[in-house]
């Protein structure tokens, strides 16, 4: 896909269509359309180590092995990384099939900076981070619920009501 450029001509629009339309501005040079599909974008990420951020706030790190046009993903050798306060921990998860709608973002990990976690975050035992995370999520849930209730009292409906985006 990377080898395509402006010199690979984009297909011309049908001339019969052109006659019906009012004369428009001069055509802007277009890159080949096959570069602009979901498949082309994900193809470059296949077999790479990715950080996948999910709608429920989870961060998965694994190797992308397969995908489809909906963004459904298969991840191999996945670990889930928990961040809480200034601590983090990894949990081995294995093979994942993620339904596309739950994906926020896929990040290709720079292998030169692999597993780099900036200061002041430090590695801690899973049990400790997990317990802290659970408490933090519960607290966040309470705050969010109260906020939604107050807003609803004023007739507002949340931007993503009923859907946790973290």
């Amino acid at each position: 896909m990377e080898n395509l450029n402006l010199h690979d001509a984009a297909p011309r629009p049908l001339s019969s269509m052109q006659n019906q339309m009012p004369p428009g501005p001069p055509p802007v040079p277009q890159l080949p359309p096959q570069m602009f599909t979901t498949a082309a974008q994900l193809l470059d990420l296949t077999d790479k180590k990715l950080m996948v951020s999910l709608r429920d706030g989870r961060k998965l790190i694994g190797v992308l092995r397969s995908w489809d046009q909906f963004g459904n993903l298969v991840l191999q050798s996945t670990v889930e990384r928990l961040f809480v306060q200034h601590l983090y921990a990894d949990i081995e998860r294995g093979l994942f099939l993620v339904r596309g709608e739950n994906v926020l973002l896929l990040g290709e990990i720079d292998l030169d900076k692999d597993d780099y976690v900036p200061e002041p975050y430090e590695l801690a035992p899973v049990e400790r981070v997990f317990a802290l995370k659970k408490a933090e999520d519960a607290e966040r849930g309470r705050v969010e619920k109260r906020r939604q209730r107050t807003l609803a009292g004023y007739g507002f409906e949340g931007e993503h009501a009923g859907e946790a985006i973290l």
Binding site: L42, M51, G107, E108, D110, V117
Partner: peptide, 12 residues
């Protein structure tokens, strides 16, 4: 911090 070792992203 989960984005600090990421160089390029695909955003839904």
């Amino acid at each position: 911090p989960h984005l600090s070792s990421v160089k390029n992203v695909f955003i839904r």
